[in-house]
């Protein structure tokens, strides 16, 4: 039991941090620019594929740094020559633009790399165990990804709280036009934030690709969960996105790990039900993929502004 708790906590934290890498960019872009970027998870997928393709030529580590940079540049181009023009026609046009863009990226990935998973994996040396607990190994690669995720989190915090650009970003979250009136180039700031958000998503793809699976459906399977994180955390709240990411990461991981059915839970609470019935026999593991969306529905009903949000969703 202790083994399940320790490893599920570690895995849940890692999954949560990956979710935060995606949702932090998405929530920054949303609250600064009002753009709900449907293509955000596609940039995550591009990160994984770019790292895979580059890695074949230049090796795993250089690709790990280069792929997010490339995706960030691509994000800057998309903002400068796509979104900025579409912006003049309002938010609905922007939404449809990112919706279309997601499909374009997904189909391009299909065309270039096929529809089955590619063999993007961590180098042999990193697959060795970092430590063993109760006879289960925790790989070096998991430890490394956890470290990268934590470093990213610290870097993001430093950027936003301790630098002048961070000051402008935080100011633009509430009054974008006023930041411009003070003489700061807000369109350029938007482009930077969009590119940075895409780069963060790509970084999540680069380190998450070998852990999960690098396949053309990865954007569509993670994308909705990232949206849930942003809504549950509270639209426009970075700290909210952080807590929601960890919450969803942990809940989902624990549900998968626990070998318990609904019936077992009810019996544990003192009800006497058949643990093998049609409904009561459903295991928590099979509910796990649904948990983020249950949370989404409950939050929208009982706390529409999200855990930490100030804006209305």
């Amino acid at each position: 039991m202790l083994e399940v708790i320790v490893f599920s906590t570690l895995n849940g934290l890692l999954y949560g941090l990956l979710l935060f890498m995606l949702s932090s960019g998405l929530t920054l872009i949303f609250s600064m620019m009002g753009v709900l970027n449907f293509a955000h998870a596609s940039f995550y997928m591009l990160g994984a594929y770019f790292a895979y393709a580059l890695g074949l030529h230049i090796g795993f580590w250089p690709a790990l740094f280069l792929a997010p940079l490339l995706v960030a540049v691509l994000g800057a181009v998309v903002e400068r020559f796509g979104l900025r023009r579409v912006h003049e026609n309002g938010h609905v046009a922007e939404l449809l633009f990112t919706f279309g863009l997601a499909y374009v990226i997904d189909e391009t990935v299909h065309l270039l790399w096929g529809s089955i998973p590619v063999s993007y994996s961590a180098p042999e040396a990193l697959r060795a165990p970092l430590f063993s607990l109760f006879g289960t190994d925790y790989s070096i690669y998991r430890g490394v990804t956890m470290m990268i995720a934590i470093l990213m989190f610290v870097a993001l915090w430093f950027l936003l709280k301790k630098t002048r650009v961070g000051l402008m970003i935080r100011a633009a979250l509430t009054h974008g036009a006023m930041v411009g009136h003070l003489g700061h180039n807000v369109p350029r700031l938007f482009m930077g934030v969009f590119a940075f958000g895409c780069g963060l998503a790509a970084l999540a793809g680069v380190i998450g690709g070998p852990l999960l699976s690098t396949e053309p459906g990865m954007a569509q399977s993670l994308g909705p969960v990232v949206f849930v994180v942003v809504v549950v955390g509270g639209m426009g709240s970075l700290s909210g996105a952080f807590y929601a990411s960890l919450l969803i990461g942990l809940v989902q991981t624990f549900f998968v790990a626990l070998d318990v059915s609904i019936g077992d839970l009810l019996n544990g609470l003192g009800f006497a039900v058949d643990p093998y019935g049609e409904v009561t026999g459903i295991t928590l593991a099979s509910i796990a993929p649904m948990t983020p969306f249950i949370l989404l529905v409950l939050i929208l009903i009982f706390r529409p502004r999200g855990l930490m949000g100030e804006l209305e969703p």
Binding site: R164, L167, M168, R170, A171, L173, T174, H175, A177, M178, V179, H181, L182, G183, H184
Partner: peptide
Amino acid sequence: PESRDVFPTLTVRENLELGVK
């Protein structure tokens, strides 16, 4: 502007510093 638009999450000092171009 008439709407005053202070940046509410920034400190008073940070608001002033952001005025520097």
